[in-house]
């Protein structure tokens, strides 16, 4: 039987992505049927990924990052290329 360590270290990511092969998937789910701790672990792993993705997905609306400081914008513009004849 697959151990908790094998399930979490070696197969979890592919399982969550739906990429686990049929044979490994059967073993994986057999373990889950007798291990409530791993069921909870997988739920928390999925939540971890979801919460991380939300930081970059626009769901982070309540904490809009501040715009770049005006001094930075000016510093960037100061090094912009000039017309060849300028």
């Amino acid at each position: 039987m697959m151990t908790c360590k094998e399930l979490i270290h070696d197969f979890l990511m592919e399982y969550v992505q739906g990429d686990l092969g049929a044979e490994a998937r059967i073993e994986f789910e057999k373990h889950l049927s007798v291990c409530p701790s791993c069921v909870r672990y997988i739920d928390s792993y999925r939540r971890t990924v979801e919460m991380t993705r939300e930081l970059g997905s626009g769901a982070d609306a309540a904490s809009l990052p501040p715009p770049p400081p005006e001094g930075l914008v000016r510093a960037i513009l100061a090094v912009a290329p000039k017309p060849p004849h300028a």
Binding site: T3, R40, D43, T52, L55, S63
Partner: peptide
């Protein structure tokens, strides 16, 4: 023997109020 050293705890689920969601984003 490959078993987890401690049993995984259940995480909070369900929609959280806006201040809690913001708190969570900060924590992440």
């Amino acid at each position: 023997d490959g078993h987890a050293a401690k049993s995984a705890s259940a995480w909070e689920s369900g929609p959280a109020a806006a201040p809690v969601r913001e708190e969570l984003r900060r924590a992440v």
